[in-house]
Nucleic acid binder design. Structure first.
Lengths: 105, 105
DNA sequence: TTAACATTTCCATAATATTGGAAACGTAGA
DNA sequence: TCTACGTTTCCAATATTATGGAAATGTTAA
């Protein structure tokens, strides 16, 4: 993973509304939920939510598919895993004894 | 972990110089290295580095100790683990079959 | 085609973050 | 004490980001 991509992903997550959106999508699973449901659950106005969803999508942390007039968003687990791997890469001065395996979803 | 803390940690990491500093400290291990060495290795001017170290420290992602006239910085592995746990909490709609254990340092 | 609905784009305002030089601070050794 | 050195604070210019109303876009059902 290149540092620009990691910075982009971290910046996307470094905002309360977006972090809430992402965590909700992570918990919901790969089926995802519609933008409107997200906005309702989290109390975010449509324009603001759309802005944040765009930011998360651009960072590749979430993806969307269209179903009728709904846009269904879901977490990109692979990208989350890559980000975590990047943060913890070669950790603890190579003393792998004190590191348990990496999170994988 | 509260969302404000997570947002603070993510914001601290969402900047190229700070992410480089953090990853270097993660790789160096718990003994840490001096501020000056960090700046030299990463090519960051003293005032700028100090600003970024303060930001990372405030986010609890790194810690420091003074040794003579050197200030030695090191990663806060526990806080990194908590952040990763927060991001992946209750993931995959409870389908734990597709999630391997969390990263621990 | 028309009406109803879900979502996104446009836009201006407001708030927050980044940068690095110069000066200040604190410690160590002579 | 004096000097050298490592680090931090101060500061102001510059750049980036967040917010949400209004309008536009696209989809469905009748």
């Amino acid at each position: 993973m290149k540092i620009e991509l990691a910075v982009g992903a971290l910046a996307a997550l470094a905002q309360e509304s977006r972090l809430s959106v992402f965590r909700l999508l992570v918990q919901v699973g790969k089926e995802g939920i519609a933008a409107g449901v997200l906005g309702e659950r989290l109390g975010i106005p449509p324009a603001t939510l759309s802005f944040h969803l765009k930011t998360l999508t651009h960072a590749k942390l979430i993806k969307s598919r269209t179903e009728g007039r709904f846009v269904i968003y879901s977490a990109n687990y692979a990208e989350m895993d890559k980000l975590i791997a990047y943060l913890t890469e070669h950790c603890c001065a190579g003393d792998s004894a004190q590191c348990s395996p990496i999170k994988k979803c």
